[in-house]
Design a protein around this nucleic acid. Structure first.
Lengths: 296, 296
DNA sequence: ATGGAAACGAAAATAATTTACATTTCGGAG
DNA sequence: CTCCGAAATGTAAATTATTTTCGTTTCCAT
């Protein structure tokens, strides 16, 4: 059973994203309308939708079929289930409208990044990484430059709670020295959005000299990826707008969550105990109940 | 027009719960079926649903009307919207989950968090915060404990690129001292998922004594929210599974992106120059082209 | 019991969706 | 350049779903 995509596919709009290139002209018009105003589509009949997209109703039906839905209503239900934020149609640019568009845009990009990361996941590689991490004596999380160093910090933040020994550094010199001092059951996790952070590549090469297992969170085929023992790939086109922050961070963060959860399950008992201890400390230093997320 | 329920009511099942006592016999049968097998209802025609509830189609239509929906299809859409979010929170524990399910679960939660944050956005508050930030002499980003300190770092990371002066601290003592030393066009941004980080609340209170504008990224109505000049609310139910990291981080991060983008647009010219400079430095120290996201 | 209101379903009317088929478009072979 | 065939799209008919209308039943209060 391959059961690739469709099996549990709910996020229709994301599925649509990846089908985009195979669509015909009319279908593209429908797709654009959907992305622009999801709300409208969800609350319209096939006739209204067809009219607004300037196509005929049968074209809409065929469009739904192509996306794996048996009927227009099935499509509409899936669309309703999709927690995707459509962007509104262009409106007179009042100030508020500008704000709303910015918000929609950013949320959209984040959701798309998450979706694409999920699509491209290599489960076997994930398992292997989780295995190594759960057996590591020491874990080094490396990344530099704002985004990647945040990712490295986050790796530490998630893993130390499970009772693992983790350190992180954004400093190239330190990274190289740490890599050189690592020994076999240790693991190095290196993150770089571009994959072309050369000092980091050198650190991984040093680790490899000493047979230390290294994981790269980066772009497929990049120098960093090539230097690592294994890569958890994140391949996202970066936007051109320099004001706009990179949406890739969301994908990295989710990937870390996934890895950390898998490691937690492998360590079950000892991780629970560590978490219990952390929680105990947190609770006794907080004024109230213990329902809070660990560590705020 | 009373418009009690219908206005923006999305959680149909909740609406149904509260209407339960006013329902007739047949309507109760429909309601029971809905609670027992929501999936079925979402994917059925009115005829199938009526047949399974052993009532006539018109009764189903009347039932939908009573719940504030104009038609059966509107009802179905709302049902689809509620069940989806609902089922995500009722996911079984990750204990017996495979790798694929873990991944799906985490991506789902992240997307839901983004979606809900977007739904609840207060555009006017956002505008005000962006105004203040873009005019601030100095910006202090506070947060402690792994998650919130990451958020604070991220605020710094996004804003310094725009040419703003930003500092961050996770240390309660420092936060208090910094708050006390701030002067009016300065802005303090404090983040706390629980909203009950009391030392942070004290820091905001100190800031308020000196008429310094403060922004809270936190839960509505929490102590931190009350102590701040303005709140950008993030209200998400936190999962109970202690292995699972909080999905709220995604919402916070996106919110920061939105604010930062808005500030960037307000500062357009000077921000562009700052970004250009940063990029110049990055490029001259990298081996290759300039297409990379700023700062990796 | 019995009048009357509410609940309900049958059937007709309407509306939405899909199917079947005709027309158009477009790329490529001759 | 034109003609063929495949793909895309639309029109109209057929089907199916939904709602409305109206008559029957139920059940409560008198």
């Amino acid at each position: 059973m391959p059961a690739t995509v469709s099996e549990r596919q709910v996020d229709i709009l994301a599925a649509l994203q990846s089908e985009m290139e195979n669509l015909s002209r009319s279908e593209v018009r429908i797709a654009e309308l959907l992305f622009a105003d999801t709300e409208f589509a969800v609350n319209s009949s096939i006739i209204e939708l067809a009219a607004r997209a300037e196509v005929s109703p049968p074209t809409v039906t065929r469009f739904c079929r192509r996306l794996g839905c048996a009927s227009y209503s099935e499509f509409k239900v899936k669309l309703a289930q999709t927690t995707y934020v459509g962007s509104r149609y262009l409106q007179p640019d009042s100030r508020d409208m500008g704000t709303a568009e910015i918000a929609e845009n950013i949320v959209n990009r984040a959701q798309t990044a998450l979706y694409q990361m999920h699509q491209a996941l290599d489960l076997a590689a994930l398992d292997k990484v989780a295995d190594r991490l759960s057996q590591a004596d020491m874990i080094y999380a490396f990344g530099s430059g704002g985004n990647s160093s945040m990712i490295a910090d986050e790796i530490q933040n998630r893993l130390f709670r499970l009772g693992l020994r983790v350190t992180t550094s954004a400093d190239h010199e330190m990274q190289l020295m740490m890599a050189a001092s690592a020994k076999s059951p240790d693991v190095i996790i290196a993150s770089s959005i571009s994959g072309r952070n050369m000092p980091l590549v050198k650190a991984l090469e040093a680790a490899s000299d000493y047979k230390v297992f290294s994981v790269a969170l980066t772009r497929t085929g990049s120098p960093l990826s090539q230097a690592a023992s294994i890569t958890l790939p994140i391949d996202l086109p970066e936007g051109v707008n320099i004001y706009k922050p990179t949406a890739a961070r969301f994908a990295y963060l989710a990937l870390i969550d996934i890895v950390a959860t898998m490691v937690a399950l492998r360590l079950k008992d000892s991780a629970t105990e560590t978490l219990r201890r952390i929680k105990h400390q947190m609770v006794t230093h907080r004024d109230e109940d213990d329902k809070d997320a660990l560590g705020d």
